[in-house]
């Protein structure tokens, strides 16, 4: 039997049956979406360094599909896209768009979930949020789809120093290169969730031109 790429493509082997989302180039989206998503634009981080925002997104047609699509064995897509009224209005209704790097975050969280041995809960506004979200400041990696705010692990609510620091340590031991926000009240710290992120990862799917 042939194993050429053509054969694989014809047989549908380059498609994941559980991941039917269309990849879109953000620069081709209608103006109201481009204004909110700022695809490929530069954004200064808290140290004044320029970071380039994602350009390629998965298009999510409906909440129903987000409830069904697995990004990883223990994570469904909807868990990463819960936003409230602070998100830019066009991005609060479907179709919604999420950077392609979201799949990497999901795989990392899945590994973390295996390490803690119980359910990991991402908070509202704590997965992907656009650069136009009112909480998005200083090139937050949330706008790259590479950050998650975890408010609960199993039955433990992460709102104490001991809980946050304990699971932060597990995350750093489990996921090489992961960054976690230190416990505390001032800006740049977190006291009611565990923030972890992969940094400014840009994912460019092979098929995009």
């Amino acid at each position: 039997m042939s194993s050429s790429p053509e054969f694989a493509a014809n047989a549908g082997l380059n498609e994941s049956p559980n991941f039917p989302l269309r990849v879109v180039d953000g620069l081709t989206l209608p103006p109201e979406y481009r204004k909110a998503l700022k695809p490929g634009e530069e954004w200064k981080d808290s140290a004044g360094r320029l970071r380039q925002l994602p350009r390629y997104f998965y298009e999510i047609p409906s909440w129903d599909s987000a409830m069904k699509i697995e990004l990883a064995r223990n994570f469904l897509l909807w868990e990463f896209i819960q936003v409230d009224v602070r998100e830019a209005p066009p991005l609060r209704t479907f179709p919604r768009y999420v950077p392609c790097a979201i799949t990497l975050l999901a795989v990392c969280l899945d590994r973390f979930r295996e390490a803690v041995g119980t359910l990991v809960h991402i908070s509202a506004n704590g997965g992907y949020r656009s650069p136009s979200h009112r909480f998005s400041k200083n090139a937050t990696p949330h706008a790259w789809g590479t950050a998650a705010n975890i408010y609960r692990i199993g039955d433990t609510y992460l709102d104490t120093r001991s809980a946050i620091e304990r699971f932060s340590l597990i995350a750093r031991e489990t996921l090489p290169g992961i960054w976690t926000r230190p416990y505390g009240a001032p800006t740049g710290y977190a006291e009611d969730h565990l923030h972890l992120d992969l940094g400014y990862v840009l994912s460019v799917p092979r098929d995009v031109s």
């Binding site: 409230d84 009224v85 602070r86 908070s123 509202a124 506004n125 006291e191 009611d192």
Partner: peptide, 13 residues
């Protein structure tokens, strides 16, 4: 700018 059913994240901070 808001709808009556617009959702707000309940965060005590």
């Amino acid at each position: 700018e808001l709808l009556p059913h617009s959702r707000v994240h309940v965060r005590n901070r």
